[in-house]
Computed example of a mutant assay.
Amino acid sequence: MNKINIKLLKLLIENKGDYVSGEKISQELGVSRTTIWKHINKLRELGYQIDSLTRKGYSLIKSPQGMVAENIYLGLDTEVFGKEIRVYPSLDSTNTKAKELAADDYPTGTVIITEEQQQGKGRRGRGWYSPPGTGLWFSVLLRPDIAPNKAPFLTIISALAVSEGIKKVASSLVPVIKWPNDVLLAGKKVCGILSELNADLGMIKYAVTGIGINVNQTSFPAEIADIATSLKIEAGNEIDRTLLVQEIIVSFERYYLEMEAGHYDKLLGLWKKQLNIIGEQVIIYANEGITYEGNVLDVSSQGELIIKDKNGEINKFWAGDVSLRRKK
């Protein structure tokens, strides 16, 4: 993001409906009027409708409808997250782009957003349906100061942040977290989360948490129509994607700082309250066609599912090892 663009846009927003003179902008930003004109044109290229009148200055008429980094940034009240925001018209995968930025030493809290994902990834290599301009497809680059065995908490806190963000923009909705990394509405999937690590023994170099949310879709391909939904379908109205991502980023940072402070029990407790699986009879589909049946007793301190089978044997399962379906 360009710092002059941000400062200029902030000034125009603060004076929306009025004209701000080139002289005032020049004084406030400490740049020449020629520089101001260049950045006004850059904002116009991003989709901002800005009027200009001789001897009156500039006036912001309308902001763009799509995802724009400057718009998102100006609505954030965060310490770390969202200080770097990259928005792309199309990407293969936001997680892949986040890893590239990690190699270039981008900081914790860098947010990568795309209007369309060509090869969105879900857990265990599954694809993620990511049509253009309707959903929220983004990743957050993290450099957490936690032990690698606490890495499951990255998915835990991101699910909490998504749930909280949904409730902020659509108060009538009741999100439920499906262990380990989905968010549901009315029993259907509205969000998937994928966290990936680059770690050495005893240290996480960086992590990437990818979040895909069905926001304003009104229909889905036949193969997922029975299991997928969107915020618009459930709320009955269009959802502001910019506001949604802002709310999620703010919540994500708060939970992230709690995690780094070691408040794991608190975070686990909040997560468990929203899980839809504790006390249920389930079938666990593990690797190589092995299945387990039993009752979900609890979730461990590491986020593992604790299952008691019909013989009384207790087993623990984590997301990377199993797929889960409710027993019919």
Rank of each mutant, 00 (worst) to 15 (best):
V183G: 11
E196G: 05
A161P: 03
F220C: 09
V190P: 06
P148W: 08
E234W: 01
A199S: 14
F220H: 04
G212S: 02
K167R: 15
S230A: 09
K189I: 07
Y206M: 08
I193L: 15
V190C: 07
I211Y: 00
I193P: 14
I204P: 13
G165H: 13
G212F: 00
S158N: 08
G212A: 03
T218I: 05
P175G: 08
P175M: 02
L142C: 11
A186K: 12
A170H: 09
A151G: 04
T209Q: 12
D200S: 14
D145G: 00
A222L: 15
T229G: 06
N216D: 05
K167S: 15
I224S: 03
A222N: 13
P144D: 13
E238V: 10
E234V: 01
K178I: 11
A225I: 07
E234N: 02
K232S: 09
E164Q: 09
A235G: 04
P152T: 07
I156M: 14
D145H: 06
A228W: 11
L154S: 12
N181G: 10
V162C: 09
D200W: 05
L173H: 07
L197N: 08
L154Q: 11
A186Y: 01
V183D: 10
T218A: 01
Q217H: 04
V183C: 09
S230V: 05
K178Y: 07
I227D: 06
I224C: 02
A222C: 02
Q217M: 12
L201Y: 13
C191L: 01
V169M: 07
K167C: 06
L160D: 10
V176S: 15
G187H: 09
K168D: 11
L184E: 10
K167V: 06
I204C: 06
S172Q: 13
V183T: 14
S230K: 08
T229N: 11
E234D: 01
I177L: 02
T209A: 13
N216T: 00
Y206Q: 08
I146C: 03
G202T: 10
S230I: 03
N198P: 00
E164I: 00
G210L: 06
Q217T: 05
N181A: 07
K232E: 13
V183S: 12
S230H: 10
I193Y: 03
I224P: 01
E164W: 02
K167W: 01
I211H: 01
I227W: 01
T218D: 09
I233P: 03
A207M: 04
S171F: 04
A235C: 09
A225L: 12
W179V: 04
K168C: 00
K189W: 07
A151L: 00
P221D: 10
A222G: 10
W179P: 02
P152R: 12
I211L: 05
K178F: 12
G165N: 13
K205A: 12
I224L: 02
V215K: 07
A199L: 10
F220N: 05
E164R: 12
I157N: 12
E223W: 01
L231G: 08
V174P: 00
E164K: 14
V208I: 14
D145E: 09
I157D: 09
A199Q: 15
P221A: 11
D200E: 15
P175L: 01
